[in-house]
């Protein structure tokens, strides 16, 4: 336990982070490729058709992982922002910044696949169903967070501002989510995946889905590590340039 704590704190130092990241990035990259392709190929070619939804059930293998990531990346950004505000660890701030674009893309793909799946099954691409509305809300807050980084130059002040924006955004995103769910539960079925429930979806779909989720999470982690590494190097270059030019 003590060793673990020490390691976490070491991780917060950008140089240590870089040396650790350099070691584990190739490993993560290979693992991502293997697991993601295994999950997607299994899901696409070796699963039977659902008796009600036909082969359109195969969309679940990207819809669920991307939706899962879209929500959890925002949560991760919130945690990283809070850590930055309290402990002033630069890696934490950079992690929040780097995760935002991936989260936006995951939200977009979740909405896209959901819409494509919804047309044959629900008869409409888009309805103002609570769950869809909460994804639209999530999309807006991702855009807000990204725009603060796009318009202003990287500095600790902007880091503070963006962290506060992330915190305020998550408060209001949660409030809006409950406001939307206040009147009805919408078209979606209840959660189909949970660890403690007896009735999960059928095992035929369950295992490839779990593999796909792990694969997408690994994809996110790999991309995040590379992006953080790039961002740290960018800041290094800036510092070096400033030092040279005076």
């Amino acid at each position: 336990m003590i060793k673990f704590r020490k390691n976490i704190l070491e991780f917060a130092n950008p140089n240590n982070f870089l040396s650790i990241a350099n070691k584990i990035i190739p490993f993560f990259l290979i693992l991502t490729i293997i697991i993601l392709s295994l999950g997607l190929v299994w899901g696409l070619f070796f699963t039977p058709e659902d008796y009600r939804q036909g082969s359109s059930v195969k969309i679940i293998f990207i819809h669920v992982p991307t939706a899962f990531l879209a929500i959890n990346i925002y949560f991760m950004m919130l945690l990283a922002s809070i850590i930055w505000l309290i402990r002033r660890h630069h890696v934490s701030l950079i992690a929040a910044k780097s995760a935002a674009l991936i989260g936006l893309i995951m939200t977009l793909s979740a909405i896209l696949t959901g819409a494509i799946w919804g047309k044959p099954i629900w008869g409409t691409y888009w309805a103002w169903d609570p769950r869809l509305t909460s994804f639209a809300i999530l999309l807006m807050f991702y855009l807000g967070y990204l725009s603060i980084w796009q318009t202003m130059k990287f500095s600790d002040k902007i880091g503070d501002l963006s962290s506060w924006l992330c915190i305020v955004g998550s408060i209001f995103a949660l409030l809006s989510r409950y406001a939307v769910f206040f009147w009805d539960q919408g078209l979606h079925q209840g959660p189909s995946l949970s660890l403690d429930k007896e009735e999960n979806i059928d095992n035929v779909f369950y295992f490839p889905l779990i593999i796909c989720i792990i694969g997408f999470v690994l994809l996110f982690l790999t991309l995040l590590l590379i992006r953080i590494k790039t961002e740290i190097q960018k800041r290094k270059i800036n510092i070096l340039l400033n030092a040279r030019d005076g």
Partner: peptide, 26 residues
């Protein structure tokens, strides 16, 4: 948030309009 930022008006709408949502929905 946009204090001291030139052309912050558009940024304010991007940041703040989504946070009006709970009030607007209800």
């Amino acid at each position: 948030l946009t204090l001291g930022e030139k052309g912050g008006n558009l940024l304010i709408s991007i940041f703040i309009l989504p946070t009006f949502l709970p009030i607007i929905i209800f």
